Simulated assay, not measured.
Amino acid sequence: MDIFVIDAFTDQHFKGNSAAIMPVTTFPDASLMQRIAAENNLSETAFIKPTGDNTYAIRWFSPLTEIDFCGHATLASAFVLYQFYQLKGEITFTTEQVGTLTVKQATNGNIEMNFPCQPGEEVEPPATLLKGLSITPIKVLKNRQAYIAVLPNEQAVHDIVCDAEQLKQLAPHDIVVTAQSSQYDFVSRYFWPANGGYEDPVTGSIHTALAPYWAQQLDKRELTAYQASQRGGVLHCKMIEDDRIIISGSAVLYLRGKVYL
Protein backbone atom coordinates (compact mmCIF):
# COMPACT_ATOMS: atom_id res chain seq x y z
CA MET A 1 0.00 0.00 0.00
CA ASP A 2 1.26 3.48 -0.83
CA ILE A 3 1.78 5.83 2.10
CA PHE A 4 2.60 9.53 2.21
CA VAL A 5 3.33 11.54 5.35
CA ILE A 6 2.50 15.21 4.93
CA ASP A 7 3.05 18.18 7.24
CA ALA A 8 -0.13 20.24 6.81
CA PHE A 9 -0.93 23.88 7.58
CA THR A 10 2.73 24.77 7.23
CA ASP A 11 5.39 25.38 4.59
CA GLN A 12 8.17 23.96 6.79
CA HIS A 13 9.07 20.44 7.79
CA PHE A 14 8.42 19.51 11.43
CA LYS A 15 5.77 22.22 11.80
CA GLY A 16 2.00 22.08 11.35
CA ASN A 17 0.31 18.73 11.79
CA SER A 18 1.43 15.43 10.29
CA ALA A 19 -0.98 13.10 8.51
CA ALA A 20 -0.45 9.75 6.84
CA ILE A 21 -2.32 9.50 3.56
CA MET A 22 -3.07 6.06 2.09
CA PRO A 23 -4.77 5.90 -1.32
CA VAL A 24 -6.69 2.63 -1.75
CA THR A 25 -8.93 1.10 -4.41
CA THR A 26 -11.21 -0.41 -1.73
CA PHE A 27 -11.39 0.48 1.93
CA PRO A 28 -9.83 -2.25 4.08
CA ASP A 29 -11.80 -3.58 7.01
CA ALA A 30 -12.25 -0.85 9.63
CA SER A 31 -10.33 -2.87 12.22
CA LEU A 32 -7.34 -3.08 9.87
CA MET A 33 -7.47 0.65 9.11
CA GLN A 34 -7.49 1.31 12.86
CA ARG A 35 -4.47 -0.92 13.41
CA ILE A 36 -2.60 0.81 10.58
CA ALA A 37 -3.41 4.20 12.14
CA ALA A 38 -2.17 2.99 15.52
CA GLU A 39 1.04 1.70 13.90
CA ASN A 40 1.55 5.00 12.06
CA ASN A 41 1.00 6.75 15.42
CA LEU A 42 0.34 10.14 13.84
CA SER A 43 -2.48 12.54 14.66
CA GLU A 44 -4.47 11.14 11.73
CA THR A 45 -4.25 8.52 9.01
CA ALA A 46 -6.58 9.22 6.07
CA PHE A 47 -7.67 6.54 3.61
CA ILE A 48 -8.91 7.88 0.26
CA LYS A 49 -10.78 5.80 -2.31
CA PRO A 50 -11.67 7.00 -5.82
CA THR A 51 -15.42 6.96 -6.54
CA GLY A 52 -15.55 9.01 -9.77
CA ASP A 53 -13.75 11.75 -11.68
CA ASN A 54 -11.93 13.89 -9.11
CA THR A 55 -14.18 12.39 -6.44
CA TYR A 56 -12.93 10.39 -3.45
CA ALA A 57 -14.46 8.86 -0.37
CA ILE A 58 -12.34 9.72 2.68
CA ARG A 59 -12.11 8.22 6.15
CA TRP A 60 -9.92 9.42 9.02
CA PHE A 61 -8.43 7.47 11.94
CA SER A 62 -6.51 8.69 14.96
CA PRO A 63 -4.33 6.13 16.78
CA LEU A 64 -7.34 5.48 19.03
CA THR A 65 -10.52 5.68 16.95
CA GLU A 66 -12.21 6.64 13.68
CA ILE A 67 -12.77 10.41 13.52
CA ASP A 68 -15.89 12.10 12.11
CA PHE A 69 -14.09 15.07 10.54
CA CYS A 70 -10.45 16.06 10.06
CA GLY A 71 -9.25 19.19 8.30
CA HIS A 72 -5.49 18.78 8.21
CA ALA A 73 -5.67 15.24 6.79
CA THR A 74 -8.13 16.47 4.14
CA LEU A 75 -5.63 19.17 3.15
CA ALA A 76 -2.85 16.56 3.11
CA SER A 77 -4.96 14.20 0.97
CA ALA A 78 -5.57 16.92 -1.61
CA PHE A 79 -1.86 17.77 -1.59
CA VAL A 80 -1.01 14.13 -2.40
CA LEU A 81 -3.59 13.96 -5.20
CA TYR A 82 -2.38 17.21 -6.78
CA GLN A 83 1.33 16.47 -6.43
CA PHE A 84 1.55 12.73 -7.10
CA TYR A 85 -1.63 11.68 -8.94
CA GLN A 86 -1.76 14.55 -11.47
CA LEU A 87 -5.23 15.71 -10.48
CA LYS A 88 -6.29 19.15 -11.69
CA GLY A 89 -9.14 21.42 -10.68
CA GLU A 90 -11.61 20.85 -7.86
CA ILE A 91 -11.56 17.65 -5.81
CA THR A 92 -14.67 16.39 -4.04
CA PHE A 93 -14.37 14.30 -0.87
CA THR A 94 -17.44 12.42 0.34
CA THR A 95 -17.69 11.67 4.05
CA GLU A 96 -19.92 9.63 6.30
CA GLN A 97 -20.59 12.33 8.90
CA VAL A 98 -20.10 15.85 7.48
CA GLY A 99 -21.37 15.56 3.93
CA THR A 100 -19.47 16.69 0.83
CA LEU A 101 -16.21 18.63 1.09
CA THR A 102 -14.70 20.37 -1.95
CA VAL A 103 -11.07 21.36 -2.33
CA LYS A 104 -9.11 23.37 -4.88
CA GLN A 105 -5.71 24.98 -5.31
CA ALA A 106 -5.42 28.74 -4.96
CA THR A 107 -3.21 30.83 -7.23
CA ASN A 108 -0.72 31.26 -4.36
CA GLY A 109 -0.33 27.48 -4.06
CA ASN A 110 -2.41 27.11 -0.90
CA ILE A 111 -5.09 24.45 -0.78
CA GLU A 112 -8.59 25.81 -0.13
CA MET A 113 -11.16 23.58 1.56
CA ASN A 114 -14.88 24.35 1.48
CA PHE A 115 -16.30 23.07 4.77
CA PRO A 116 -19.67 23.29 6.52
CA CYS A 117 -19.71 25.70 9.48
CA GLN A 118 -20.20 23.95 12.81
CA PRO A 119 -20.74 26.85 15.22
CA GLY A 120 -20.95 26.31 18.95
CA GLU A 121 -23.71 27.40 21.31
CA GLU A 122 -22.96 28.90 24.69
CA VAL A 123 -23.41 26.42 27.54
CA GLU A 124 -22.87 26.23 31.27
CA PRO A 125 -19.40 24.64 31.60
CA PRO A 126 -19.35 21.17 33.14
CA ALA A 127 -17.49 20.90 36.43
CA THR A 128 -15.15 18.37 34.82
CA LEU A 129 -14.12 20.91 32.19
CA LEU A 130 -13.35 23.58 34.80
CA LYS A 131 -11.36 21.10 36.86
CA GLY A 132 -9.43 20.08 33.76
CA LEU A 133 -8.21 23.59 32.88
CA SER A 134 -5.65 25.57 34.88
CA ILE A 135 -7.24 28.87 33.76
CA THR A 136 -10.96 29.61 34.09
CA PRO A 137 -12.61 30.52 30.77
CA ILE A 138 -14.75 33.64 30.44
CA LYS A 139 -17.23 31.76 28.24
CA VAL A 140 -17.79 28.18 27.07
CA LEU A 141 -19.51 27.06 23.88
CA LYS A 142 -20.15 23.57 22.57
CA ASN A 143 -20.58 22.08 19.09
CA ARG A 144 -20.80 18.51 17.85
CA GLN A 145 -17.03 18.07 18.16
CA ALA A 146 -15.74 19.95 21.18
CA TYR A 147 -16.20 22.36 24.04
CA ILE A 148 -14.86 25.80 23.10
CA ALA A 149 -13.35 27.66 26.06
CA VAL A 150 -12.80 31.38 25.44
CA LEU A 151 -9.89 32.57 27.58
CA PRO A 152 -9.23 36.09 28.90
CA ASN A 153 -6.21 36.78 26.68
CA GLU A 154 -3.70 35.32 24.24
CA GLN A 155 -1.07 34.59 26.89
CA ALA A 156 -3.56 32.39 28.73
CA VAL A 157 -3.79 30.16 25.64
CA HIS A 158 -0.02 29.69 25.70
CA ASP A 159 0.13 29.17 29.46
CA ILE A 160 -2.81 26.85 30.06
CA VAL A 161 -2.19 23.37 31.44
CA CYS A 162 -4.78 20.63 31.09
CA ASP A 163 -5.59 17.63 33.26
CA ALA A 164 -6.03 14.86 30.70
CA GLU A 165 -7.83 12.53 33.10
CA GLN A 166 -10.48 15.16 33.81
CA LEU A 167 -10.91 16.07 30.15
CA LYS A 168 -11.30 12.41 29.15
CA GLN A 169 -14.59 12.46 31.03
CA LEU A 170 -15.98 14.91 28.45
CA ALA A 171 -15.90 12.15 25.80
CA PRO A 172 -16.89 12.04 23.04
CA HIS A 173 -16.20 15.79 23.07
CA ASP A 174 -12.73 17.33 22.98
CA ILE A 175 -11.74 20.79 24.27
CA VAL A 176 -10.32 23.79 22.43
CA VAL A 177 -9.14 26.97 24.15
CA THR A 178 -9.04 30.24 22.23
CA ALA A 179 -8.48 33.99 22.55
CA GLN A 180 -8.08 37.06 20.40
CA SER A 181 -4.52 37.61 19.17
CA SER A 182 -2.32 40.63 18.49
CA GLN A 183 -0.33 39.06 15.62
CA TYR A 184 -3.21 36.99 14.22
CA ASP A 185 -6.95 37.41 14.54
CA PHE A 186 -7.20 34.58 17.06
CA VAL A 187 -5.17 31.74 18.54
CA SER A 188 -6.14 28.35 19.89
CA ARG A 189 -4.93 25.05 21.33
CA TYR A 190 -6.78 21.74 21.04
CA PHE A 191 -6.80 18.92 23.59
CA TRP A 192 -8.29 15.52 22.80
CA PRO A 193 -7.24 12.88 25.37
CA ALA A 194 -10.42 10.85 24.81
CA ASN A 195 -10.01 10.55 21.05
CA GLY A 196 -6.39 10.93 19.99
CA GLY A 197 -3.80 12.18 22.47
CA TYR A 198 -2.99 15.00 24.84
CA GLU A 199 -2.74 17.89 22.34
CA ASP A 200 -3.40 18.01 18.60
CA PRO A 201 -0.81 20.18 16.77
CA VAL A 202 -3.19 21.84 14.26
CA THR A 203 -6.91 21.08 14.00
CA GLY A 204 -8.60 22.24 10.81
CA SER A 205 -12.03 20.88 11.71
CA ILE A 206 -12.50 22.93 14.88
CA HIS A 207 -11.93 26.14 12.93
CA THR A 208 -15.38 25.55 11.42
CA ALA A 209 -16.54 26.64 14.89
CA LEU A 210 -13.76 29.04 15.91
CA ALA A 211 -13.81 31.15 12.73
CA PRO A 212 -17.59 31.83 12.79
CA TYR A 213 -17.31 32.83 16.46
CA TRP A 214 -14.41 35.22 15.93
CA ALA A 215 -15.87 36.53 12.66
CA GLN A 216 -18.86 37.70 14.67
CA GLN A 217 -16.80 39.02 17.57
CA LEU A 218 -14.39 40.94 15.35
CA ASP A 219 -16.87 41.82 12.58
CA LYS A 220 -14.60 40.32 9.92
CA ARG A 221 -15.28 37.81 7.11
CA GLU A 222 -11.63 36.86 6.57
CA LEU A 223 -9.43 35.82 9.47
CA THR A 224 -5.96 34.43 10.06
CA ALA A 225 -5.63 31.91 12.87
CA TYR A 226 -2.66 30.38 14.64
CA GLN A 227 -2.82 27.11 16.56
CA ALA A 228 -0.24 27.59 19.29
CA SER A 229 0.93 24.03 19.85
CA GLN A 230 4.61 23.12 20.07
CA ARG A 231 4.66 22.58 16.29
CA GLY A 232 2.27 25.43 15.46
CA GLY A 233 0.30 26.07 12.28
CA VAL A 234 -1.37 28.89 10.37
CA LEU A 235 -4.91 28.67 8.97
CA HIS A 236 -6.61 31.17 6.68
CA CYS A 237 -10.38 31.29 7.20
CA LYS A 238 -12.97 33.00 5.02
CA MET A 239 -16.69 33.03 5.69
CA ILE A 240 -18.43 32.63 2.32
CA GLU A 241 -21.98 31.92 3.49
CA ASP A 242 -23.69 31.69 6.85
CA ASP A 243 -23.18 27.95 6.79
CA ARG A 244 -19.99 27.49 4.71
CA ILE A 245 -16.37 28.45 5.28
CA ILE A 246 -13.13 28.27 3.29
CA ILE A 247 -10.16 27.07 5.36
CA SER A 248 -6.85 27.10 3.53
CA GLY A 249 -3.21 26.38 4.14
CA SER A 250 -0.05 24.93 2.69
CA ALA A 251 1.63 21.55 3.06
CA VAL A 252 4.98 19.82 2.53
CA LEU A 253 5.94 16.19 1.84
CA TYR A 254 7.89 14.45 4.58
CA LEU A 255 7.79 10.80 3.50
CA ARG A 256 6.70 8.65 0.57
CA GLY A 257 6.86 4.89 0.84
CA LYS A 258 5.15 1.50 1.01
CA VAL A 259 3.35 -0.37 3.74
CA TYR A 260 3.69 -4.17 3.47
CA LEU A 261 0.87 -6.28 4.88
Score class of each variant (00 low, 15 high):
residue 50 P to N: 13
residue 68 D to P: 03
residue 99 G to I: 06
residue 73 A to M: 05
residue 23 P to N: 12
residue 120 G to E: 12
residue 17 N to E: 06
residue 23 P to S: 13
residue 94 T to P: 02
residue 129 L to W: 07
residue 42 L to K: 02
residue 84 F to W: 13
residue 51 T to P: 09
residue 70 C to I: 04
residue 18 S to M: 03
residue 18 S to Y: 00
residue 45 T to F: 00
residue 81 L to D: 04
residue 54 N to R: 14
residue 38 A to D: 08
residue 21 I to A: 00
residue 58 I to M: 04
residue 36 I to F: 08
residue 76 A to H: 05
residue 77 S to W: 01
residue 88 K to A: 10
residue 114 N to F: 06
residue 126 P to W: 04
residue 90 E to M: 12
residue 99 G to R: 11
residue 130 L to W: 14
residue 109 G to C: 12
residue 27 F to P: 05
residue 108 N to F: 05
residue 14 F to Q: 12
residue 116 P to H: 08
residue 128 T to E: 14
residue 45 T to Q: 01
residue 87 L to D: 03
residue 49 K to Y: 02
residue 91 I to D: 01
residue 86 Q to D: 15
residue 32 L to H: 14
residue 33 M to V: 04
residue 64 L to R: 13
residue 118 Q to I: 09
residue 75 L to G: 05
residue 102 T to I: 08
residue 106 A to R: 14
residue 91 I to S: 03
residue 20 A to C: 11
residue 43 S to Q: 05
residue 32 L to F: 09
residue 66 E to F: 03
residue 116 P to A: 09
residue 83 Q to I: 02
residue 40 N to Y: 10
residue 28 P to Q: 12
residue 131 K to I: 00
residue 97 Q to L: 01
residue 48 I to R: 02
residue 23 P to E: 07
residue 86 Q to L: 11
residue 68 D to S: 09
residue 92 T to D: 04
residue 92 T to V: 09
residue 87 L to W: 09
residue 103 V to A: 02
residue 29 D to S: 12
residue 128 T to P: 02
residue 81 L to V: 06
residue 29 D to L: 12
residue 135 I to N: 11
residue 41 N to C: 07
residue 129 L to Y: 07
residue 87 L to N: 13
residue 56 Y to T: 03
residue 47 F to I: 08
residue 120 G to F: 06
residue 49 K to F: 00
residue 129 L to R: 13
residue 25 T to Q: 15
residue 121 E to L: 13
residue 38 A to V: 00
residue 132 G to N: 11
residue 100 T to A: 07
residue 66 E to H: 03
residue 80 V to G: 08
residue 19 A to T: 02
residue 76 A to V: 08
residue 33 M to Y: 02
residue 111 I to H: 01
residue 46 A to K: 02
residue 21 I to G: 00
residue 109 G to R: 11
residue 40 N to Q: 15
residue 125 P to W: 07
residue 103 V to N: 00
residue 50 P to R: 13
residue 125 P to L: 06
residue 45 T to N: 00
residue 134 S to L: 13
residue 57 A to G: 03
residue 23 P to V: 07
residue 101 L to A: 00
residue 20 A to V: 05
residue 61 F to C: 01
residue 131 K to C: 06
residue 20 A to E: 01
residue 74 T to D: 00
residue 76 A to I: 08
residue 29 D to E: 15
residue 125 P to C: 09
residue 47 F to E: 02
residue 128 T to G: 07
residue 126 P to D: 05
residue 89 G to E: 11
residue 28 P to H: 09
residue 16 G to S: 04
residue 132 G to L: 12
residue 126 P to E: 14
residue 72 H to R: 06
residue 101 L to T: 00
residue 27 F to C: 08
residue 81 L to P: 07
residue 96 E to T: 08
residue 34 Q to K: 07
residue 134 S to V: 14
